[in-house]
């Protein structure tokens, strides 16, 4: 669950509203509960959407976490 926690921590640093979508399900990027319930395994395609202050930076930072090679564990 370490990547998920890292993801939530990073998202929480931003004021923007951020969501993650997998298939048709959407989760609040700042909620570990919603995120882990997406049960995204390795290699899953995620869409990160941010609205509000710092949204551009937020998406970039979060995408970096997801793409990180070390994120070998599923969320």
């Amino acid at each position: 669950m370490r990547p998920a926690m890292q993801f939530v921590d990073c998202a929480s640093d931003f004021d923007a509203d951020i969501s993650v979508t997998m298939d048709s399900q959407t989760a609040d990027a700042k909620s570990i509960m919603q995120l882990t319930m997406l049960a995204a395994g390795k290699g899953t395609k995620l869409t990160i959407t941010a609205v509000g202050a710092g949204s551009q930076k937020a998406v970039e930072a979060l995408a970096a976490i997801v793409e990180n090679e070390n994120a070998s564990e599923p969320v």
Partner: peptide, 12 residues
């Protein structure tokens, strides 16, 4: 850490 993240999760 997992426990803390869940306990601090406002949506939960």
């Amino acid at each position: 850490a997992v426990h803390l993240h869940f306990l601090r999760d406002r949506t939960l």
